[in-house]
Amino acid sequence: MYDGKRVELKSTITCPKCGYKKDEIMPTNACEFFYECDSCKTRLRPLEGDCCVYCSYGSVKCPPIQVGAGCC
């Protein structure tokens, strides 16, 4: 539960450089602005207009976006 609404906390991040995928648990109290790919070590940053790496590269958007609260 997040802000009284049910949200999905597991997201699969896909590296745009090498295609490596990894399941991650998203934090509910902060955005992740940087993420390092375990395979190729590329440092991912959110795309323009996105608030975090989960919104840009994840299979599920971050908790605040899921509940309609806007950016983290």
Score class of each variant (00 low, 15 high):
Met1Arg: 11
Met1Gln: 10
Met1Cys: 08
Tyr2Gly: 04
Tyr2Met: 11
Asp3Phe: 12
Asp3Leu: 14
Gly4Glu: 10
Gly4Lys: 01
Gly4Trp: 07
Gly4Tyr: 01
Lys5Trp: 02
Arg6Asn: 10
Val7Glu: 04
Val7Thr: 06
Glu8Arg: 14
Lys10Ser: 07
Ser11Thr: 15
Ile13Ser: 08
Thr14Ala: 14
Thr14Trp: 03
Cys15Gly: 10
Pro16Ser: 11
Pro16Ile: 12
Pro16Val: 10
Lys17Ala: 09
Lys17Asn: 14
Lys17Gln: 12
Lys17Asp: 14
Gly19Pro: 11
Tyr20Glu: 11
Tyr20Asp: 12
Tyr20Ile: 04
Lys21Val: 07
Lys21Asp: 03
Lys22Ile: 13
Lys22Met: 12
Lys22Pro: 02
Asp23Leu: 13
Ile25Cys: 05
Ile25Phe: 08
Ile25Ser: 10
Met26Trp: 06
Pro27Trp: 05
Pro27Thr: 06
Thr28Tyr: 04
Thr28Glu: 15
Thr28Cys: 08
Asn29Asp: 14
Asn29Tyr: 13
Ala30Val: 04
Cys31His: 06
Cys31Ile: 07
Glu32Ala: 10
Glu32Arg: 12
Phe33Arg: 12
Phe33Glu: 12
Phe33Gly: 09
Phe34Lys: 12
Tyr35Val: 05
Cys37Ala: 04
Cys37Asp: 01
Cys37Pro: 00
Asp38Val: 04
Ser39Val: 04
Cys40Tyr: 01
Cys40Thr: 08
Lys41Gln: 12
Thr42Val: 13
Arg43Lys: 15
Arg43Tyr: 02
Leu44Cys: 02
Pro46Ser: 05
Leu47Arg: 15
Glu48Val: 11
Glu48Lys: 13
Glu48Ala: 15
Glu48His: 06
Gly49Arg: 05
Gly49His: 00
Gly49Ile: 01
Asp50Val: 01
Cys51Asn: 08
Cys51Ala: 10
Cys51Tyr: 02
Cys52Tyr: 02
Cys52Asn: 04
Ser56Trp: 05
Ser56Leu: 10
Tyr57Arg: 07
Tyr57Glu: 01
Tyr57Ser: 04
Tyr57Leu: 08
Ser59Ile: 07
Ser59Trp: 00
Val60Ala: 12
Val60Ile: 15
Lys61Asp: 13
Lys61Gln: 12
Lys61Ile: 08
Lys61Phe: 02
Lys61Pro: 09
Cys62Glu: 06
Cys62Ile: 07
Cys62Val: 03
Pro63Gln: 02
Ile65Gln: 13
Ile65Cys: 14
Ile65Trp: 03
Ile65Glu: 14
Gln66Ser: 07
Gln66Tyr: 06
Gln66Met: 08
Gln66Ile: 07
Gly68Asp: 05
Gly68Glu: 09
Ala69Ser: 13
Ala69Lys: 15
Ala69Arg: 07
Ala69Leu: 14
Ala69Gln: 06
Cys71Asn: 10
Cys72Ile: 00
Cys72Trp: 15
